[in-house]
Design a binder for these strands. Sequence first.
DNA 1: AAGTTGACCCCAC
DNA 2: GGTGGGGCCAACT
Length: 109
Amino acid sequence: MTLKSRVFEFVKTIPKGKVAYYGMVASHVGTTAQVVGWVLSGMPESEYDIIPWERVVAKDGYISTLKMGYKGILQKQILEKDGYEIIDDHVNMLKHLMKPQLDNDLFEG
DNA sequence: AAGTTGACCCCAC
DNA sequence: GGTGGGGCCAACT
């Protein structure tokens, strides 16, 4: 199992209506957030349909791909189409983050 | 093999 | 509370 495979497998487990952040994916697959970004940046467009890459955002909910160009526009559009609550280019993490990290208490309701 | 480059994150000012 | 720099891992040259 390669690192890329592990990242992709984890991203596939993000449920619709939820998001994960880079560092969270990283801790699950055993690497760092920067590497997760690098892996996703190299993902072929043919995988776009089977891997919900748009559900990975920065820790504060920011859609970091917006700094890159068309991919960012695409990501934001997909999320909006799927009904995510996005304010000022930030996904509402309190609402859409997939699982508590148990390190914080942002999820007490 | 050493240097550069990221779809990041944390710390200090 | 915004901004700047360092650390981190893997790939590319």
